[in-house]
Write a protein that binds this DNA or RNA. Structure first.
Length: 812
RNA sequence: GCCCGGGUGGCGAAACGGCAGACGCAGGGGUCUUAAAAACCCCAGUCCGCAAGGGCGUGCGGGUUCGAGUCCCGCCCCGGGCACCA
C-alpha cells in the first residue's frame, strides 16, 4: 500500500441532503429577498402566476418558472437587484367547478390547494421573494381588484348592457364559447341556447388603436405581438348609408370593399338588428319573427361555425346609392350584431359568403371587378375575391380603375353625396367582466331605486364574498349571491335607503390584469400599489409565460395599465417592457393529458434525480421558446454532468500550472453561456458547459481551482443548489449569487493556429493546420502541396475563394 | 380557409451563406474489477470497399451562389392559433 496519508473520503454529490440544506441557508440568510426599498439597479422578473389546481404543480408550470428563474438569477449575478415574486390565480370558474364536482367548498379547498402548491414551489428552489406572495382570492387582494373596477367606472369605461351568452339549461349556467362543443354543453351534453343578460363591460375598444400602435415598439415575442394584432383586427373600410324605401330609416353598413358598391344586390341585417322590426312588412313578419326566434335558440358557437346559409326576407327594399336600384333587405345569422354595424351590403359577385347566400335564395349576382384580360360580363361560377390585380367593370364612372384606387375614389364619391365615409373598424370588442357565478370578487356596485347605480365607497371595500354553503348556480341566470338576502340587501351608500347589491362577480382576467402592480406592495394595507415602490420597480423588465395568454391576459393587462396611467395612477402605460413566450413540453412525442395517463409528476423526478437535475433537464430538452420532448431516459445525462461538476470542484487543486487549452475553452464557454443565457438559449448554454467539463476532466485530469471557480458561477442559474454547495466547497463565503458573473478575456478567444478547410469545387478534400493570420497565397501553396488536395487539382485553379481562418475553396 | 411555428442520424437536438449532426440519450468496443455496477477512454449518418478511399445525404421539385439545412419560387406533411369579422 501507498505510504501517503489516506485522503479524506470524498464527498459524493448528494442532492437529497444538499438541496434542503441550501434552501434552509437561503431562508435563514434572506438570500432571495429583494432590496425592495432602495434598489440600485432594479430588475423585475415576472412569471405568469399559476392557477392552484388540486392536482398540484404541473411539469409545464415548472418548465415555465425555471426558465424565468434562470433569467432572474443570471441578472442577479450581473449585479442587478432582482425582484422575482410569485402568487396564485386562485379565483375562477375552474376552482368553482372543481369544488362542485368533489362536493367541497372553494373557501376551504382553495387554501388547501394553495398550501400544496406552495410546498412544491418552495422545493423547486426558485429565487422567489415569498414575502410578496399574492393570492387573488383573499380579501386583502380582491379589495383592490374592486378598487380597479371603481376606477374604470369613474372613468366611464365600465358600463352595463344586454348581451347574449351561451346558456346551459341543465347546468344552469353561462358557458364560455370554449365550453360549447357542437352546440352542446361540454360537461352534460345538453343543448345550449342563447340568453340575453345584463352584463358589465369594460370599454377596451376605445383603446384599440393605442393597444395596436404600441406593439410596434414593445420588445415582445413576435408571435405574441402578431396574435394581438390579429385579435385587435384593424380594418380600413367605409360606412355606407342605404335609404329604406317608404321609411325614414337608413341602414348603415360597414364594408372593406366600397369599390364593389355597384355590385351590391341586396342588404343583410343581423337578426337582432334594431331596425328589423320597423322595416319588416306585414306579409313577411311571421317568417322574420320565426327566423329571429330560431336564431335565439342557437348557441353562439354553432351560429359562428355553421357555413350553411339561412335567412328571411323582410319585405323591405333599400336603394343602392350608386346605382339607384331598389335592392331587397334580408336578415341572416351569418351577419353578426357585434361586428361593424350589424349590417352588410351583400356583393355576391365578390364575396364567397354573399355568393353562397345568393345561390341559396336565388338573389342576383353581378360582376363589378374583372381580372386582367377578363371580359366585363364573364359569368361568375363563384365569388371573385382577388382584389390585387382586378379592375372595376359595370361601375359607371369607375370602370377600368384598379381595385386599390377605387376603394378611396368610390368612398369619396359616396361621401360627397352624403352616403358614406371612410372608417376604421376593429374586431376587438368590449370586455365582458360579469360572471353569474360565486367564486370571484363581487362587483362593488349597489342599485338604489332613488339613486340608481351607486359605486361602493372605497372605505367600504372590500365587498366581501360571503360564505355560501350552497353556491351552486340555479336556472335564474343570476349569481348564487342573490340568494343570500342578508348580503344582497344593503343600505344605499348615498341615501341610506334599502338597496340591492350587484350579484355578479368579476372575471378572473381582471384579477390577473393588475397583479404585477401588487407584488412590490403585496403587504400594503393602505393602497393597491405604493407610489414609491411602484416607481422603484415598475414596469416589469422581464415577463415570461405561455403564449396561450398572448391575447386575453396580456391585452387586458396592457389596457388596465393604460387606463391607470391616463388617470394619473401610473407613470408608464405599458406594463411589460419585455415579454417572451415559452414553448410547450410534450412527452415522448405526445401531448400530456390526464386521460392519456402520461402526466409527469415533478415530485417523483425530483426525489430520484434531485431538483437541480430536474430543472436542468427541463431546460436541456430543446429551445426554451419552442418547448421540448420529455423522455425519461434523458435525465441521466444531465445528472451525470452535475456529478462531474461536483467532482471537479471537490478534486480541484490550488496549485500547479494552468493548461492553456483549458483556459481558452473556459473563456469561450463564459462568452457562450453568457450570450445564450441572456437570450433564453438555455439548451445550448448547458451544452457549452458540458463541453467545457469534458475538456476540463479529459483523462481524469485534476482541475485547477481557477478553472472550476468560474464554472460554478456559470452553472449557478441552472443548478442553484449545486452551485451554492460547490461555492462553499471552494472555501468561499457568502452566496454564489452575490459573487458576480465571470468575465472572459477576449485575447483568449483567438487561436494562434487554426484548421483551414480546403475544398475543391465545394467538396472538402483536405484540412490544414495553419497560423491564424496566414495569407491567401501561402494557404493556396500549402493546399496544393497536400496530396489529398492535389489529386483533384489539374493545373491552375480557375478561381480561389479564401475565407480567412475558415476555408479555402478551389474552383477547377 | 387564414396566420404563425416546424420537418436534420435509432432518439432529443446543434449549426454568423463556409467541415451537417455540437451536446445529450440509447448502442458498440476498451481500461479498471475475481465479476458486475459505477467511473474513465474510444467508435458511431448512410451505402460501396479488407483497407486507403469514394458515392449519397437536412420533407419533395426547381432556382440563386465558388459554396445552400440556411436565401428565392412552387408543392407535401406535422403541430399550434384564429375562423361566416363583411
Amino acid at each position: 500500500m501507498s505510504d501517503t496519508p489516506s485522503a479524506p473520503v470524498p464527498a459524493p454529490y448528494d442532492p437529497a441532503t444538499l438541496e434542503p440544506r441550501i434552501q434552509r441557508q437561503w431562508a435563514e440568510q434572506g438570500t432571495n429577498q429583494a432590496r425592495l426599498d432602495d434598489p440600485a439597479r432594479k430588475f423585475y422578473a415576472l412569471m405568469m402566476f399559476p392557477y392552484p389546481s388540486a392536482e398540484g404543480l404541473h411539469v409545464g408550470n415548472l418548465f415555465a418558472f425555471t426558465g424565468s428563474d434562470i433569467s432572474a438569477r443570471y441578472h442577479r449575478l450581473l449585479g442587478y437587484d432582482v425582484f422575482q415574486p410569485l402568487g396564485y390565480d386562485a379565483f375562477g370558474i375552474h376552482s368553482e367547478n372543481y369544488a362542485l364536482k368533489v362536493g367541497a367548498h372553494p373557501m376551504e379547498l382553495t387554501p388547501r390547494n394553495v398550501a400544496n402548491f406552495q410546498r412544491q414551489l418552495e422545493r423547486a428552489g426558485l429565487m422567489v421573494d415569498w414575502r410578496q406572495k399574492v393570492d387573488t382570492s383573499r380579501p386583502d387582494y380582491y379589495r383592490w381588484t374592486q378598487w380597479v373596477f371603481l376606477r374604470l367606472l369613474e372613468r366611464g369605461l365600465a358600463y352595463k348592457k344586454q348581451a347574449a351568452v351561451n346558456w346551459c339549461p341543465s347546468c344552469k349556467t353561462v358557458l364560455a364559447n370554449e365550453q360549447v362543443e357542437d352546440g352542446a354543453c361540454e360537461r352534460c351534453g345538453a343543448a345550449v341556447a342563447q340568453r340575453e343578460l345584463e352584463q358589465w363591460f369594460f370599454r377596451i375598444s376605445a383603446y384599440a388603436e393605442r393597444l395596436l400602435a404600441n406593439l410596434d415598439w414593445l420588445d415582445w415575442s413576435a408571435i405574441t405581438k402578431q396574435a394581438q394584432r390579429n385579435w385587435i383586427g384593424r380594418s380600413e373600410g367605409a360606412q355606407l348609408e342605404f335609404a329604406v324605401a317608404g321609411h325614414d330609416a337608413r341602414v348603415t353598413v360597414f364594408t372593406t370593399r366600397p369599390d364593389t358598391i355597384f355590385g351590391a344586390t341586396y342588404l343583410v341585417l343581423a337578426p337582432e338588428h334594431p331596425l328589423v322590426g320597423a322595416i319588416t312588412t306585414a306579409a313577411q313578419r311571421a317568417a322574420v319573427e320565426a327566423y329571429q326566434a330560431r336564431t335565439r335558440q342557437q348557441d353562439l358557437v354553432t351560429r359562428k361555425t355553421t357555413r350553411e346559409k339561412t335567412g328571411a326576407f323582410t319585405g323591405a327594399y333599400a336603394t343602392n346609392p350608386a346605382t339607384g336600384a331598389p335592392i331587397p333587405v334580408w336578415i341572416a345569422d351569418y351577419v353578426l350584431m357585434e361586428y361593424g354595424t350589424g349590417a352588410i351590403m351583400a356583393v355576391p359577385g365578390h364575396d364567397a359568403r354573399d355568393f353562397d347566400f345568393a345561390q341559396a335564395f336565388g338573389l342576383p349576382v353581378a360582376r363589378v371587378v374583372a381580372a386582367p384580360g377578363e371580359a366585363p360580363d364573364a359569368p361568375l361560377a363563384e365569388a371573385f375575391e382577388d382584389d390585387a390585380g382586378g379592375r372595376l367593370v359595370n361601375s359607371g364612372p369607375f370602370d377600368g380603375l384598379p381595385v386599390a384606387e377605387a376603394k378611396g375614389a368610390v368612398t369619396a364619391w359616396l361621401a360627397e353625396r352624403g352616403a358614406g365615409r371612410a372608417v376604421v373598424n376593429y374586431r376587438l370588442h368590449d370586455w365582458c367582466i360579469s360572471r353569474q357565478r360565486y367564486w370571484g370578487p363581487p362587483i362593488p356596485v349597489v342599485y338604489c331605486d332613488g339613486c340608481g347605480t351607486v359605486p361602493v365607497p372605497e372605505a367600504q371595500l372590500p365587498v366581501a364574498l360571503p360564505f355560501l354553503a350552497d353556491f351552486k348556480p340555479d336556472d335564474s341566470g343570476v349569481s348564487p349571491l342573490a340568494r343570500d338576502a342578508a348580503w344582497f340587501r344593503v343600505p344605499c351608500p348615498r341615501c341610506g335607503a334599502e338597496a340591492r347589491r350587484e350579484t355578479d362577480v368579476s372575471d378572473t382576467f381582471l384579477d390577473s390584469a393588475w397583479y404585477f402592480l401588487r407584488y412590490p406592495s403585496a403587504t400594503d394595507a393602505g393602497a393597491p400599489f405604493d407610489g414609491a415602490r411602484t416607481r422603484a420597480w415598475l414596469p416589469v423588465d422581464s415577463y415570461i409565460g405561455g403564449n396561450e395568454h398572448a391575447v386575453l391576459h396580456l391585452l387586458y393587462s396592457r389596457f388596465i395599465t393604460m387606463v391607470l396611467h391616463d388617470m394619473g395612477h401610473l407613470a408608464f402605460e405599458e406594463p411589460f417592457t419585455r415579454f417572451r413566450a415559452h414553448g410547450m413540453i410534450i412527452r415522448e412525442g405526445a401531448k400530456m393529458s390526464k386521460s392519456k395517463g402520461n402526466v409527469i409528476n415533478p415530485d417523483q423526478y425530483m426525489d430520484q434525480w434531485g431538483v437541480d437535475a430536474f430543472r436542468m433537464y427541463l431546460m436541456f430538452l430543446g429551445p426554451y421558446e419552442e418547448g421540448g420532448d420529455f423522455r425519461d431516459q434523458g435525465i441521466s445525462g444531465v445528472r451525470r454532468f452535475l456529478d462531474r461538476v461536483w467532482a471537479s470542484v471537490r478534486d480541484a487543486t490550488a496549485e500547479g500550472a494552468a493548461d492553456p487549452a483549458v483556459a481558452r475553452k473556459l473563456h469561450r464557454t463564459i462568452k457562450k453561456v453568457g450570450e445564450d443565457t441572456a437570450t433564453l438559449g438555455y439548451n445550448t448554454a448547458i451544452a457549452a458547459m458540458m463541453e467545457y467539463v469534458n475538456v476540463l476532466r479529459r483523462g481524469e485530469r485534476a482541475p485547477h481551482r481557477h478553472e472550476v471557480r468560474p464554472l460554478v458561477q456559470l452553472v449557478a442559474p441552472y443548478a442553484p443548489h449545486l452551485a451554492e454547495g460547490c461555492w462553499a466547497l471552494l472555501g468561499e463565503t457568502g452566496s454564489v449569487f452575490d459573487a458576480g458573473w465571470p468575465a472572459f478575456d477576449p485575447a483568449q478567444l483567438v487561436d494562434d493556429e487554426v484548421e483551414l478547410v480546403v475544398q475543391v469545387n465545394g467538396k472538402v478534400r483536405g484540412k490544414l493546420r495553419v497560423p491564424a493570420g496566414v495569407a491567401e497565397g501561402e494557404a493556396l501553396a500549402l493546399a496544393l502541396a497536400d496530396p489529398g488536395v492535389a489529386r483533384f487539382v489539374d493545373g491552375a485553379p480557375k478561381k480561389v475563394i479564401f475565407v480567412p481562418r475558415r476555408l479555402l475553396n478551389l474552383v477547377v
